[in-house]
Lab assay of single mutants.
Amino acid sequence: LRTVEMKKGPTDSLGISIAGGVGSPLGDVPIFIAMMHPTGVAAQTQKLRVGDRIVTICGTSTEGMTHTQAVNLLKNASGSIEMQV
């Protein structure tokens, strides 16, 4: 596991798309980074990659989380965001 910290302002975009989660079209698979926009906050860290499994978001485990719950957690996060992948 590695921990990645990002700074995100209220109008900034992380610039990632995620897939997976409980009840997702892919089945109940762990949440992972499906796409990254090169100008997004996540890409700027140069520490995240497409395919990385997201284990925690700001200390909250993604295990058993639906896709929608994970998306909302990421969208609503601002300031210092910590992810374990």
Rank of each mutant, 00 (worst) to 15 (best):
S78M: 08
K8D: 00
F32Q: 10
E63M: 09
P30Q: 06
G20A: 01
L14E: 02
N76M: 11
S24K: 02
V29D: 05
G79H: 07
G20W: 03
A70F: 05
K8H: 03
Q84D: 05
T56A: 12
A34F: 06
A43C: 07
K8R: 11
D12S: 09
V4D: 10
D28A: 04
A19N: 12
S61R: 10
L1I: 15
S80A: 11
A77W: 07
S80C: 11
S78C: 12
S17W: 10
N76D: 12
P25D: 13
Q46K: 15
E82I: 14
A19H: 05
M35I: 09
R49L: 10
H37V: 10
E5L: 15
E82K: 14
S80D: 14
R53H: 14
L14K: 01
D28E: 07
V71C: 14
G21F: 00
G9D: 11
T56C: 07
M35F: 15
Q84V: 12
G79A: 06
P38R: 06
G27M: 02
G20V: 00
A34E: 15
I33W: 04
I16R: 02
A19R: 08
F32S: 11
E5G: 06
S24C: 06
M6R: 01
I16F: 10
T66R: 07
L14A: 01
I18H: 00
A34M: 07
I33P: 05
V50Y: 04
L1Y: 13
I81E: 04
G21A: 01
S80Y: 11
V29T: 10
E63H: 12
Q69G: 08
M36R: 02
A19M: 11
K7D: 12
I57Q: 03
M36C: 03
H67L: 13
I33T: 06
E82A: 10
T3R: 11
T62G: 01
Q69A: 11
T68F: 10
A70K: 01
T3Q: 07
R2N: 06
P38W: 03
T60V: 13
G21Y: 05
V50C: 09
A77I: 12
G59S: 05
L26H: 12
H37E: 15
L48N: 01
M6E: 00
T62N: 05
D52R: 03
M6W: 05
A77S: 12
T68Y: 11
Q84R: 07
K47L: 11
L48I: 08
A77E: 08
L74S: 05
I33F: 00
D12T: 09
G79W: 01
Q44L: 11
H67R: 14
G79R: 06
V29F: 04
G9C: 07
M35Q: 15
T45D: 06
L48Y: 01
G21I: 01
S80Q: 12
R2Y: 11
K75L: 09
T45M: 06
G20M: 00
Q84A: 08
M65C: 03
G9W: 04
D52Q: 07
T60D: 10
G21T: 01
H67D: 10
C58S: 10
G40M: 04
V71N: 15
I18M: 08
D28I: 03
I54P: 04
H67V: 13
S13M: 14
P30N: 05
